[in-house]
C-alpha cells in the first residue's frame, strides 16, 4: 500500500506545481483555463471510476453532472437553501441517480455499448424534463444571483475557485487511489476484465457495479455543483446535453482510462491542444476545431492506450 519513491516524487512535484500555480499565473485568462482544465479532469475522473476501472462505458455522464448543477441551483434559487447545503444535497442526488440508473440497467445485464446508449437516453429524458418544468426554470435555465462570499460558495477572486477545484480534484483522486488499492477496486477491475469469471469467483458483480456508478454519479455531480457556482448559470443543454457527456469521457480516454492520473493528463493535453489550435488557426471559424479533430486522431493512432501509455511503456 505504500508509494514507491519515484511515484512519491512525481506526486510531490505535481502537487507543488498545482499549489504554486496561481503564484506564477497572474493572467486571469490562464488561471481560468487551468480552473476549467481541472474541472474537466474532475468530471473525467468520475467517468474514469466507472468506465476506466469498471469497464462500464457511459455516454450519458451529463445525467449526473446536470443533476448536481440543477439540484444545487434549484435549492438555492427556489427554496432559499444555503449554497453549501444545496451542494451537499446535490451530490447526494447525483449518487442517487447513479444508484437508480445502475440498478435498472445492470439488473438486466446491460453491457458495453448497450449500457452506453441507455445512459445517453437517460440524460436526454432529464434534459427534456428540466426544459419543460417550471421548477427547474424550464427553457430559461437557472440563474444564480451574484452573492460573493465564501458563505455562498462564490468568490470574487477567482484564485479561490482555482483552489476549490484543485481541492475537489485532489479529493477525487485520493478516493480513486484508495479504491484502486482496496478489495472493492480489485473486484471492479475483475468485473471489467471478465464479468462471468468474476461472478464465478463469487463476486457480486451487480453490487460492485451499482456502488461504482453511485460513486461516479456523486463525483460528477460535484463537478456540476462547481460549474454552477463558477458560471452562476445552467440550462438544459449545458446540464444534460450530450456535449458534457462527451467532455466526461474524452479526458480519461485520451489520458489513459483506468489510470489514476489519466483524466488529469488527458484534460491538460486536450486543453493545450485546443489552445494551440486556436492560437494558430483561430482566425477562421471552424479551422481550429478541424485541426483539433485531426490531432485527436493522430494521438489515437500513435498512443492507443492514451498518454499514460507513454509512461507505462517505459516503466
Amino acid at each position: 500500500m505504500r508509494l514507491r519513491s519515484g511515484q512519491a516524487g512525481a506526486l510531490f512535484v505535481l502537487a507543488a506545481f498545482f499549489l504554486l500555480l496561481p503564484q506564477f499565473v497572474t493572467s486571469s485568462y490562464w488561471l481560468g483555463l487551468w480552473t476549467l482544465t481541472l474541472f474537466y479532469a474532475l468530471l473525467g475522473q468520475s467517468w474514469n471510476l466507472l468506465g476506466g476501472y469498471g469497464g462500464q462505458v457511459s455516454f450519458g455522464h451529463a445525467v449526473f453532472f446536470g443533476t448536481g448543477a440543477y439540484v444545487s441551483a434549484v435549492l438555492q434559487v427556489k427554496f432559499g437553501f444555503n449554497a453549501w447545503a444545496g451542494a451537499a444535497v446535490a451530490v447526494a442526488a447525483g449518487g442517487l441517480v447513479g444508484a437508480f440508473l445502475g440498478a435498472v440497467s445492470f439488473r438486466y445485464g446491460l453491457r458495453g455499448s448497450y449500457f452506453a446508449l441507455v445512459t445517453l437516453a437517460f440524460a436526454e429524458v432529464f434534459r427534456v424534463l428540466v426544459n419543460s418544468w417550471e421548477l427547474t426554470g424550464s427553457g430559461f435555465g437557472m440563474l444564480i444571483p451574484l452573492r460573493p462570499g465564501a458563505a455562498h460558495l462564490q468568490f470574487t477572486d477567482r484564485t479561490w475557485f482555482y483552489y476549490l477545484i484543485l481541492a475537489l480534484l485532489a479529493a477525487a483522486c485520493a478516493l480513486v487511489w484508495w479504491i484502486e488499492r482496496s478489495r472493492f477496486g480489485a473486484y471492479l477491475v475483475a468485473v471489467r476484465e471478465n464479468e462471468d469469471a468474476a461472478q464465478a469467483l463469487g463476486i457480486d458483480c451487480f453490487r460492485v457495479k451499482v456502488v461504482a456508478i453511485t460513486l461516479s454519479g456523486a463525483l460528477a455531480s460535484v463537478a456540476g455543483v462547481f460549474y454552477v457556482q463558477y458560471f452562476l448559470f445552467v440550462d438544459s443543454h449545458i446540464g444534460y446535453g450530450p456535449a458534457m457527456s462527451v467532455n466526461a469521457l474524452l479526458a480519461p480516454l485520451i489520458g489513459g482510462a483506468g489510470t489514476l492520473f489519466g483524466p488529469l493528463i488527458g484534460a491538460v493535453a486536450l486543453g493545450a491542444l485546443s489552445e494551440l489550435t486556436t492560437l494558430a488557426l483561430g482566425k477562421t471559424p471552424g479551422v481550429n476545431l478541424l485541426a483539433f479533430g485531426v490531432l485527436l486522431l493522430v494521438i489515437l493512432r500513435f498512443l492507443p492506450n492514451g498518454l499514460m501509455g507513454l509512461f507505462r511503456g517505459r516503466a
Binding site: S27, S28, Y29, G32, L36, Y227, F231, A243
Partner: peptide, 15 residues
C-alpha cells in the same frame, strides 16, 4: 455557442 467558452474568450480578450 457555449457559456464556458464565452467566458474564457472574455478573459482572454480583456487581457
Amino acid at each position: 455557442s457555449k457559456p464556458e467558452a464565452a467566458v474564457a474568450e472574455v478573459d482572454k480578450l480583456s487581457e
